[in-house]
Write a protein that binds this DNA or RNA. Structure first.
Length: 662
DNA sequence: GAGTTTGAAACT
DNA sequence: CAGTTTCAAACTC
């Protein structure tokens, strides 16, 4: 079998890149974006090589599934991105072939593999990707390890073709500029396919679409592992993982053979200023998501639940927010390899600064060797990178074996150890049995916190940190979580606010005041917008700008769904103040859409399990669906949406929550 | 930047 | 499972 390297080489063929760049689509995009693509960035190749590899099941965690979707999405995106290029399909095929080659080799090699490559690949094609910022997109790819795929990667092909078709539908059918939103939305839908067989699910979706448009949908090849069976059994976690995967960046779990790739990938992938942005595809994480925390760090950020949303967000951001500044700041710096690629101290500094925000923080481990969950990087499933201040760090590609072994060990102890800490409400409901009606928050911490002194008002509290309310699973004392108290009081409880204020006045400490202020701000936001996921999302968006400050809001991960610790990675990195307005408007738009549709068009961003919940809590009261409808039940979603996009749900069986309650 | 606080993770 | 210790992030000064 080919060595990983070889595959990499194959995959990363510069040729393809050139093609893309030369393609009309690419040009078109360039014309739209102020950012100038950086052709020199090879990164994508890495991932490309990895693309389609089906992650072995090293990581047994559910996250794996998500990667699939994401990767597909990306890939799709690529394909779709080239509307004008009739050859696109052929290109896709080529890529696929390359990917396949890589796949085979990789798959065998490491069970750990990640789909990252796919993502990356995606980037490469993505016009946006050209710029460093574009790389952020790649982050999405960080997606968790996806389930193993057929060697031939036929499924990918199929999906790619399908995507292409989708694109055609959007672009050609409508003439003119591609309907990116639509594409994204579709993509998100795709992501939704939690089943390992996304392809299958995707296919269904496509079929639907095809029936409408008359497009022919390629058939999946029998050899692929993603065959139907899995589609049915898609675990919810898979979905979440998507989110998570997104977050995770830099996980380069490269196999020894792939190292080269990883380094490259890292560099390019990370392009974003913050790690967050950078995809750390992590090793572990990928497993998925990320935690959220990660927003940046989050390398992993992607939370399962929110994966799709995250993706969308990322996509949106990338698509719309690429700015020169971003390009500038987002110099790709992938964790592990960052150093290698930093061309100048200045760049480095920029990167660090950019990443300095919460989102991009890295670990500072001194005794754990970054091989324990104490280490945020490790917990997130990513390798430590330059920004880390850790000592005796073993969480590096060089020690891959050790990392994997340790990871396995930890997972053996607690299978969910690397799962996103924050679970979407739907999941949590299922898993924890939490009553959605009582918990406004869109998500919950999988295990719940155990705060004694922080009143769940500080980041010491994982729930708070994750931007979610406390639940019955929490054993906290004096819970005043602004996102939702354990007792079920509203997230943005005014009471809590007052209490906090009182406390603040009493102490009248500047620091404290600051903190409270922050809390209040959040509350304010929430007050205005009831604690629906949407509101949360919005909140985050609004607050993101501040996220850089210390006490700021919890990592966006929450939005993501979790990135949990790992996932936490929200996209704050992506969001820059200047971009916020755009995002907001976009978000608004999405919401508006929802209104119009009456929910049907729920923001794709929120798609996922959260959707259900969102609707349930919807402020406008338009869709108050039964709490459990949910999420778990695919059918329900379908029912909601006549559009068919939700077909995805079909593929997703109502599965038990991924995260087991402890 | 150093020291303290906090709560999760790890250990017993 | 509960109690204790270890650890690193969060926070304070």
């Amino acid at each position: 079998m080919d060595t990983p390297q070889k595959s990499i080489t194959q995959i990363g063929t510069p040729i393809s890149k050139s093609k893309f760049e030369d393609s009309p689509l690419f040009n078109y995009i360039n014309s739209l974006s102020p950012i100038r693509p950086v052709k020199s960035i090879p990164i994508p190749h890495h991932f490309s090589s990895l693309n389609f590899t089906s992650p072995p099941s090293v990581f047994t965690s559910p996250h794996l599934t998500s990667s699939h979707k994401e990767s597909r999405f990306f890939k799709t995106h690529n394909s779709s991105s080239d509307p004008t290029n009739p050859v696109e399909e052929s290109t896709s095929n080529e890529e696929v072939a390359a990917a396949e080659a890589g796949d085979a080799s990789i798959g065998e090699e490491a069970s750990i593999e990640m789909e990252l490559p796919q993502i990356i690949k995606y980037d490469r094609d993505d016009p946006v990707a050209a710029s460093p910022c574009g790389r952020e997109t790649v982050d999405l790819s960080l997606v968790p390890y996806s389930p193993p795929r057929g060697e031939n990667g036929s499924s990918e092909d199929a999906s790619g073709m399908e995507l292409q078709k989708m694109y055609d539908e959007n672009v050609q059918g409508k003439n003119e500029t591609p309907d990116w939103e639509s594409l994204i939305s579709d993509a998100s839908e795709l992501l939704i396919f939690g089943s390992p067989n996304d392809s299958e699910a995707f296919r269904c979706l496509m079929m639907q679409r095809a029936s409408t448009s008359g497009v022919e949908i390629p058939k999946m090849q029998p050899g692929s592992k993603n065959e139907p069976e899995s589609s049915d059994a898609i675990p919810c976690e898979a979905v979440s993982f998507l989110h998570r995967g997104i977050r995770r960046r830099c996980l380069d779990f490269e196999m020894p053979g792939n190292k080269q790739t990883s380094s490259e990938s890292n560099t390019s992938a990370c392009g974003s200023s913050s790690r967050c942005v950078l995809p750390s595809i992590g090793l572990h994480l990928n497993a998925i998501l990320m935690s959220s925390k990660d927003s940046c760090s989050g390398n992993i950020q992607v939370g399962l639940q929110g994966s799709s949303s995250t993706l969308q967000e990322s996509l949106v951001i990338q698509t719309e927010n690429e700015t020169p500044e971003d390009a500038d700041q987002d110099v790709p710096v992938e964790p592990a390899m960052e150093e290698l690629h930093l061309s100048s101290p200045k760049k480095k500094r920029l990167k660090l600064e950019a990443g300095e925000g919460e989102s991009c923080k890295r670990c500072n481990c001194k005794k754990s060797k970054c091989l324990k969950l104490y280490c945020e990087c490790f917990a997130a499933g990513v390798y430590c990178i330059e920004p880390c201040s850790c000592i005796d760090c073993f969480n590096k590609p060089i020690h891959e074996d050790t990392v994997l072994a340790t990871r396995k060990q930890i997972e053996s102890r607690n299978p969910l150890a690397f799962a996103p800490k924050v679970i979407r409400s739907s999941d949590s409901v299922i898993e924890t049995g939490d009553d959605a009606s009582k918990t406004p928050a869109s998500a919950r911490h999988k295990r719940g916190c155990n705060c004694k002194k922080s009143n769940c008002l500080k980041k010491y509290c994982e729930c708070f940190q994750g931007g979610v309310g406390c639940s019955i699973n929490c054993r906290c004392e004096g819970c005043k979580n602004a996102f939702g108290r354990k007792d079920g009081s509203s997230t943005v409880d005014m009471e809590a606010e007052q209490e906090e204020e009182n406390e603040t006045s009493e102490k009248s400490k500047t620091a404290k005041t600051q903190q409270n202020t922050e809390v209040l701000m959040r509350k304010e936001e929430s007050s205005v917008l009831p604690t629906t996921p949407m509101s949360m999302y919005r909140q985050q968006l609004v607050q993101l700008p501040f996220s850089s400050s210390k006490n700021m809001m919890p990592p966006p991960q929450s939005l993501l769904g979790g990135g949990s610790s790992s996932s936490g990675i929200f996209n704050s990195q992506y969001l820059r103040k200047q971009d916020i307005s755009l995002i907001q408007s976009r978000t608004k738009k999405s919401f508006e859409t929802v209104t119009e549709d009456g929910v049907a068009e729920m923001p794709e961003i929120l798609s996922h399990s959260s959707i259900d919940k969102i609707k349930a809590v919807s402020p406008n009261g338009k869709r108050v669906s039964p709490p459990h409808l949910d999420s778990s039940s695919p059918g329900s979603i379908l029912g909601r949406r006549s559009g068919g996009r939700k077909l995805i749900l079909n593929s997703i069986p109502s599965f038990p929550s991924l995260t087991p309650q402890h």
